[in-house]
Each structure stands twice: as C-alpha cells, then as structure tokens.
Design a protein around this nucleic acid. Structure first.
Lengths: 194, 194
DNA sequence: AAATGCAGTTGATCCAGATCAATTGATTTA
DNA sequence: TAAATCAATTGATCTGGATCAACTGCATTT
C-alpha cells in the first residue's frame, strides 16, 4: 500500500529513500478508503488532510454564485489531493473534494506533515518539488483558460492527460476545461471529424 | 538594498534570520537595475534568474496564437518574479518579463539557488512557503477566471490588490484579468456609478 | 508650441460559447 | 426487469464580452 508512495518520492526527488527514513513517512500516513461519491472535504470546513491517492480517482470543485460547478482538479492514483490554502492556513475551504471511483488514500494531517518535514529532509524536498510542480501546472492552466479557444482547450487535454478520457465522464472533463457539456460534445465531434 | 529581502524572509518564515545565515543569502544574490520597458526575459529563452523586486514594478506576459498579450503576473517591490517552469526545468519560456517602472532586482541563478537551499535551511523553508503561496494564489486566479463575470473580476482586483490601480495602467489590469481594455473601461464606469 | 503617440472612453456590431429544450441510450437502483 | 437517473447528443436561440472604429485628452518628443 505504501509502495506507490515510496516510488513516487524516489521519482520526484531523483533519489532512493532509505528504509529508516521511510519509516517516518509510513508512520505519518493513515490508510483511508473512500467509496465513489463519498466526500473528503465539504465547502465551508477546513481541509484537514494532505492525501496521496494510492488507487482510484478524485475531483475537487467549487460552486459559483449561479450554482454552477467548476472542477478545479482531477486526480488519479499517484497524485496528491488537498486544498493547500485551507490546509496550510487552517481556514475554511471554498471547495468540495469527492471520489469519482472507489479510492484508497494515504492521509496525514497538518501536525504530522509538519513533523515529518522536520524528521525527513527527503520529505521536505518532496513537498517543495510538489508545490513547485503544482504552481507550474497552475500557471499553465491560467494561461490555457484565458488564451485558448474551446477547441484548443480540448486538444490540450487530449495531449496533456489522455488517461482522463477513460477515467472521468465527459461532463467532468468539460467542467475541468471551463466549458459546458454541450460545447464539449460539439467540440469533440468537430475534432474527431478531421 | 538587501534589507527588504531580509525582512521578507523573516516575515514569511515567522523567524528572525541570523547574521551568519544571511551572509549566504547576500552572497547568492546580485543587484541588478532595469529601466522601464527593459526586458528580463524574452519568450523562447530560458529564464535564468529568480528575481526579488527590491523596488519597482514588473510584469510577465505571453502572446497567444492571435497575437494578443495576456499578462499572467503583475509584481511590485517585495515580490518575486520568475518563470518557475522554465527556471527549474531549464526549458525555453513562453513568457516575456519586462519592467513597468525602473526597478532594482536581487537576482540569483539556478546553481546559486540550489546551493543556497543546501546552505540555508531558512532559505529552503522560505522557497517552500513561496511556492505554496504561489500555488494557492494560482488556484484562486484559475477559479476567478472561470467562475467570475467581468464585473466580479474587477471587484476582486479592487479588494485583493488596490495598490495595483496606482502603479499599473488600466489596460494592463484589463489584460491581467483577461478582459479587453474596452470592457475594463465599461465595467469601471458601471461599478463607480453605484 | 507643434507634432506624435499612447491610454482611456464611447458607440455599433459581431460571435463563440452559454442556455434552454427535447431525444436517446446507458447505468444504477429497487 | 422495470423504473428512475444520469450522460451524451443535437437543435434553436440568446448574450456577455470581443472586435472594430472614431474621438479626446495627456504626455513625450522635436
């Protein structure tokens, strides 16, 4: 169960973590299973966990003033999911996180994460790289959302995350791209016909 | 000159850095002055520096397929500016960075930054917090760009960064919000008349 | 002080994508 | 296995914000 996390850490830090160091990490995280449609975080409450997805699929979304859902994150096994802002600043979240498939998570609360960063330099580095990657990815999404047309957004997703198409319903992909399901359907038809 | 950086580090790490440790930081950064309209980074080249703005105002923007400018970042003294993706992965950037006002920067290249992270744990922590904050802010901008109307975007900027209105021309603020200058002007008129 | 050129405003028109609505097919639940 | 959701498609219509265009200061240059 913890293997996939260990491999993840080795990969992103470009190193091989020692058994002694990994013990700290193993101790910090609890295994938690969530069923499809079960919530990990509700809007208005504080995001208490940093979660590593060992298996399954999760999504994070907000609801705007007009009641429309906007998916901000789609995540599969081997990815992290958490509302960083809420988690680190211990403030109420504006997001919901729920399971798109039955999933197994490795979860740790803020105290454990902070302790772990003191105990394991490798983990600190991993957390740092994780945030770097997250902020780089966020930058790209901002750019995509302001400068791409619906069709360009669709094409971007096809090449950036082709695996999403087998794991998430098309309407969720639409929301993730900032499109309506109808527009997504039309764009898809358009693109496939070429 | 380095004072503002020192205060910044103290503030974000909630600690007071020692003189010995700060020596490393001082040594890593060079002072660089840029004139208004001068470029720090051109699209297509690698972003070689992580820059702390000691004084002045900078912007980062990309140019889309239709030739339109999209400002992704506006930054004032006490902020960092850099294309993280290009900087850390040493890949060509799709962004331009130039000075909106004559500015004084403290710049360090990747080698120096990496060395500094080994030498100074405080700096490593700062870099980590910096990336955290950046990714939290990026998350908010993504949300704003997909779920806010033009007027809501304008109001968001007024409350989030009122200081921008005295430092950047309105057309740049429009681009930063993903609006045209004409729409920005109309929204402004609309909002002020209430 | 004339000339040039931006930044901002205002008006008229246009369009990409949203919204509303109906239909079909697939999946979940009872 | 029937009923009830839900996902996806397709068509018709609408609209927020973009685009195009003309005009008005300011500010910079000569």
């Amino acid at each position: 169960m913890y293997d996939i996390l260990r491999k993840y850490i080795d990969r992103v830090t470009s190193a091989v973590i020692t058994d002694e160091e990994f013990v700290y990490i193993e101790q910090a995280f609890d295994v938690r299973k969530v069923k499809r449609k079960q919530f990990l975080l509700h809007e208005g409450s504080v995001c208490r966990y940093m979660s590593f997805i060992a298996s399954g699929a999760m999504r994070q979304y907000s609801i705007d003033n007009s009641g429309n859902e906007h998916i901000t994150t789609l995540a599969l096994e081997g990815w992290w999911i958490s509302d960083r802002g809420s988690f680190y600043n211990v403030t109420p979240s504006r997001y919901n996180i729920d399971a798109v498939e039955d999933s197994t998570l490795l979860v740790a609360n803020l105290e454990r994460i902070n302790l772990l960063k003191e105990q394991s330099l490798t983990f600190l580095k991993m957390a740092h790289i994780l945030d770097q990657n997250h902020s780089i990815a966020a930058q790209k999404r901002i750019e995509a959302s302001v400068s791409y047309s619906a069709e360009e957004k669709y094409n971007y997703l096809v090449q950036a995350h082709p695996e999403f198409f087998n794991r998430f319903p098309q309407s969720m992909l639409a929301s993730y791209l900032g499109l309506t399901p109808e527009t997504m359907s039309r764009v898809r038809k358009q693109v496939l016909s070429r």
